[in-house]
Design a protein around this nucleic acid. Structure first.
Length: 416
DNA sequence: TCTGGGGTCCTAGGACCC
DNA sequence: TCTGGGGTCCTAGGACCC
C-alpha cells in the first residue's frame, strides 16, 4: 500500500500557521515580483480567484473581500516543508518526497489499521507544525492520489484520510474522479479523451490498451494499469538533480545587452552554487532570452542555445564564461527583453568523471569556489564576480511575511 | 505600470554503425 | 525495371507534474 500525503493549500497554510488571525479568512500568495496568484486558501478559492490570476487584474477583488495577500516567502515554505517531511518520515521506512508539499510513503507490510495510521499522521503534522494535510492510501500510487483527493474534498466525512482497500471503493472512486483530474493526465490528453466520450477515470480504465498506447504512449498504459490496481509506478529514490535552472522575469523590459548580460551572469552563478551543493559538474549550459509576450505593439523574439562545454565544471567563473558565450550567440539588438534563464545539464559527480586529454577546468577554481561558498554561507553577504549585477535587483515583494523559522529577525515576539 | 519558477520522462527522427 | 536489414546513440520538443 502507498500513502500520499499532501499539504492543504500549502503556502497559504504556512502563512496562517504563524498568523492565527488569518484562520477562516481568504489568503492568496503571489509569485515572484508579486506577479500572479500561486496559492489560495479555500476561502479565496470559493471567491473565484483562479490559479495563476495576474495580481493587478484582481487587485480590486482582493480589496473588496479583504483578502490577505502575501508575496511568496520561499525561505519559510521550504523550512516548513522539511519539518512536515521529517515528521512523516517517521511513519514508514520508505519515503519519497514528491514535491515541496507532498510525499509518498510505502506502507507495504505494515500491520496497522491504515485509516487510523492516516489520521495519526494528519493529527501529528497539524499539532507540530500547524499545517493541515490530507492522506490518501491505496494499493498503487495513482489510486493513492485519487484517495487523497477524496480525503481532501470530503474532509468532514473522511476526517482527512481515505483508504481505497476494496474493489468496490476503487470502482466508486474511479467513477467519481473526472479524467482531467487524474494524476498524469494533463490538459492535452484530457481533451483527446473527452473527444471520444471518456469523462471519468473509470471510462479511461475501460479503454483498450492498444488505444492508450497509440494515443498516450507507454506513459498512459502505465497509468491505466496503476489505476486498475496493478502497481506499476513504484517509489522513486531521491537522487541528485539532473538539471538545475535559474530563470526570472524582469521588473521591466531590458533593451541593452549589458543589462541582460549582468542578469544572465548572476543566474549562471546561482546555478553553479546549487550545482556545487550536490557535488556535480555540468557538461552543458542552456541560455534563453524572451521578449515581453504581453506587449503586442513590440517586436517579439525569443531564442535559446545549448553550449557544450569542452570539460565538465562547477566553477562559477567558467560557467559564467560559457553562459555569456551562449548569450552572445542569440542576443539581438532592438528587442525589449522581459525574461531570461540559465539551465545546467548533463551532470557528472565531481569525484568520478572522464577527463579530457586536452582541456580541463582551471584547477585553481575549485578552492576559490569553496572559499566563496563558505563566505557567502557564513555572512550572507555576497562575494560576487565582477560580471554579475552591479546593482542589486530587488524583486517586487510588497507583502512579504517574516522568515519566522529561518532568520532571527523573523522570530515571533510574544509579549505576555 | 503590472502576467512565476523549477523539474522529470518519453518519443520521433536524424546521424551513425556494420 | 529492380536500391537491404538491423542496430545504437543523441537531441529537440512535447507532455506532464508541483
Amino acid at each position: 500500500m502507498f500513502a500520499l500525503i499532501d499539504c492543504n493549500n500549502f503556502y497559504a497554510s504556512c502563512e496562517r500557521a504563524f498568523n492565527p488571525s488569518l484562520v477562516g479568512k481568504p489568503i492568496v500568495v503571489l509569485s515572484n515580483n508579486d506577479g500572479c496568484v500561486i496559492a489560495r486558501s479555500n476561502e479565496a478559492k470559493s471567491l473565484g480567484i483562479p490559479m495563476g490570476a495576474p495580481a493587478f487584474e484582481y487587485k480590486y477583488l482582493f480589496e473588496r473581500h479583504n483578502i490577505a495577500v502575501f508575496s511568496a516567502n520561499f525561505a519559510l515554505y521550504g523550512d516548513m516543508s522539511s519539518r512536515v517531511m521529517t515528521i512523516l518520515s517517521g511513519y514508514s521506512p520508505n519515503q519519497e518526497i514528491y514535491s515541496i508539499d507532498e510525499c509518498f510513503l510505502d506502507l507495504s507490510g505494515m500491520l496497522v489499521d491504515l485509516q487510523e495510521h492516516g489520521l495519526a499522521m494528519r493529527k501529528h503534522v497539524l499539532k507540530w507544525t500547524g499545517i493541515p494535510v490530507s492522506v490518501g492510501i491505496a494499493p498503487t500510487k495513482a489510486l493513492a492520489k485519487a484517495a487523497n483527493r477524496i480525503a481532501k474534498k470530503f474532509t468532514d466525512r473522511t476526517g482527512g484520510s481515505y483508504v481505497i482497500d476494496t474493489e468496490e471503493k476503487r470502482i466508486k472512486a474511479l467513477k467519481w474522479l473526472l479524467v482531467e483530474d487524474v494524476w498524469g493526465i494533463g490538459r492535452r490528453n484530457a481533451r483527446k479523451l473527452n473527444a471520444i466520450g471518456v469523462k471519468t477515470a473509470y471510462d479511461f480504465c475501460l479503454l483498450s490498451k492498444t488505444w492508450v498506447l497509440n494515443n498516450m504512449t507507454i506513459v498512459g498504459v502505465r497509468l491505466q494499469d496503476d489505476l486498475n490496481g496493478i502497481p506499476t509506478l513504484d517509489m522513486e529514490p531521491v537522487e541528485l538533480k539532473q538539471s538545475i535552472a535559474t530563470t526570472r522575469t524582469f521588473e521591466n523590459d531590458y533593451r541593452t545587452y549589458d543589462e541582460v548580460k549582468e542578469r544572465v551572469c548572476t543566474f549562471a552563478v546561482t546555478c553553479a552554487e546549487k550545482l556545487r551543493q550536490q557535488h556535480s559538474l555540468c557538461n552543458r549550459i542552456e541560455v534563453f532570452i524572451q521578449s515581453n509576450r504581453f506587449r503586442e505593439d513590440d517586436e517579439q523574439y525569443s531564442n535559446s542555445v545549448v553550449v557544450k562545454l569542452p570539460f565538465p565544471t562547477s566553477s562559477s567563473i567558467e560557467i559564467v564564461e560559457f553562459a555569456v558565450q551562449g548569450l552572445k550567440s542569440i542576443y539581438r539588438q532592438g528587442i525589449g527583453y522581459k525574461r531570461a534563464g540559465v539551465v545546467l545539464m548533463n551532470f557528472v559527480q565531481d569525484t568520478e568523471y572522464q577527463q579530457s586529454l586536452f582541456y580541463k577546468s582551471n584547477p585553481k577554481h575549485a578552492p576559490l569556489m569553496e572559499a566563496m561558498d563558505k563566505l557567502n554561507d557564513k555572512f550572507g553577504t555576497k562575494v560576487r564576480l565582477a560580471a554579475q549585477d552591479k546593482k542589486t535587483h530587488k524583486m517586487r515583494q510588497e507583502k512579504l511575511s517574516p522568515k519566522y523559522t529561518t532568520s532571527l529577525k523573523g522570530i515571533i515576539n510574544v509579549n505576555l
